[in-house]
C-alpha cells in the first residue's frame, strides 16, 4: 500500500508577536484531497496560522511538517499555491499584463536564467483558461475589475500545478456574482482535479456542503471533522461569542 503523508502536520504550534500570544498549542493534520475551512473572529489568528504554514512567519515553538518533511528542510514550495488576503487590490499603474502575472507562478520552477519552456507555456495557458482570463492575456492587471483580478491571482497560484491551494479571504472588493463563481471553482478544483484546499473565510455557509474539515481559530485551535455540526447557528454563536447566522447557498 502506498503511504500518503499528511499535507500539513502541525504539533504544539505557538506564536507570539511582541510578547502577545497570537496562537497557542495548535495541533492538526490536513490530508490529501481535503477541503478545509479556517474560520474564526477577526484577529483570532487565521491568517497568522497560514503564514506560519508557508514560512512567512517564524513560530515561537512547535513543529510544522509539509508533505511529511520538516518545514526547515522543505524545498518543494511550488506544490503549494497561495492566494493572499486582498490580493485583488493591486496598484492600478503597476506595469504587468495578465499573462506576466500568471507566469510568475512558474518562476520558482524555472531556476536562474531559466527560459520559459513549452511546459511552462502550457501550464500558464491552462491556468488562464481554467480561470476564464485567457482572453484578457495582454490587458494590464490594473485595468481589470476586482473579480477579474481575483481570477488572475488564482490562475497564478494554479500555474505552478500545486497539490494544495491556500486561499485567504479572497473576496475583498469582489462583486457577489464573482464570489459565487469563485466558490464554484474551488468546488471543481477539489472534486474534479482532486486538489486540496485550505480556505480562510467568514462565509462558511456558502461552502458548508463542500468542506471536509473545519479549523476554528481564536488564539487556540478547535478542529472539527463534522462540518455540518460545526456550522450550526448555535455552535457558531457559542464559538464566536456573539449571535451568528449561517447562511447556506444552493449550488
Amino acid at each position: 500500500m502506498k503511504f500518503s503523508p499528511s499535507l500539513f502536520e502541525v504539533n504544539g504550534l505557538n506564536f507570539e508577536r511582541q510578547g502577545n500570544l497570537v496562537l497557542k498549542g495548535a495541533t492538526f493534520r490536513i490530508l490529501p484531497g481535503e477541503y478545509c475551512a479556517i474560520i474564526g473572529p477577526n484577529g483570532g489568528g487565521k491568517t497568522t496560522l497560514v503564514r506560519l504554514l508557508l514560512g512567512l512567519e517564524k513560530a515561537t515553538s512547535g513543529e510544522i511538517k509539509l508533505f511529511g518533511v520538516p518545514q526547515k528542510r522543505f524545498r518543494d514550495w511550488n506544490r503549494i499555491g497561495y492566494v493572499p488576503q486582498r490580493s485583488a487590490l493591486v496598484d492600478s499603474t503597476f506595469p504587468a499584463t495578465v499573462r506576466e502575472v500568471v507566469a510568475m507562478g512558474r518562476y520558482a520552477r524555472r531556476g536562474i536564467l531559466g527560459f520559459e519552456s513549452a511546459e511552462d507555456k502550457e501550464s500558464i495557458l491552462e491556468a488562464m483558461e481554467l480561470m476564464g482570463v485567457a482572453d484578457l492575456s495582454d490587458r494590464l492587471i490594473g485595468n481589470l475589475s476586482g473579480g477579474q483580478r481575483q481570477r488572475v491571482m488564482i490562475a497564478r497560484a494554479l500555474a505552478s500545478k500545486p497539490d494544495v491551494l491556500i486561499v485567504d479571504e479572497p473576496n475583498t472588493g469582489v462583486d457577489v456574482e464573482s464570489q459565487h463563481r469563485f466558490y464554484e471553482l474551488l468546488r471543481i478544483l477539489n472534486r474534479t482535479k482532486k486538489m486540496s484546499i485550505l480556505f480562510i473565510t467568514h462565509d462558511i455557509g456558502v461552502i458548508a456542503e463542500d468542506i471536509t474539515r473545519v479549523l476554528f481559530v481564536n488564539q487556540t485551535l478547535l478542529v472539527s471533522q463534522n462540518p455540518a455540526e460545526m456550522t450550526r447557528c448555535d455552535e457558531m454563536s457559542r464559538l464566536y461569542g456573539t449571535p451568528a447566522h449561517v447562511v447556506s447557498h444552493n449550488h
Binding site: L56, W77, N78, Y82, P84, S87, E100, M104, G105, Y107
Partner: peptide, 18 residues
Amino acid sequence: KELYFIAFDEDVARAGGI
C-alpha cells in the same frame, strides 16, 4: 524574473520558494 515577482508581491514570491 525573481526581482520582478518580488516587486509585484513579496509575500507570494517568498511563499513560492524564492
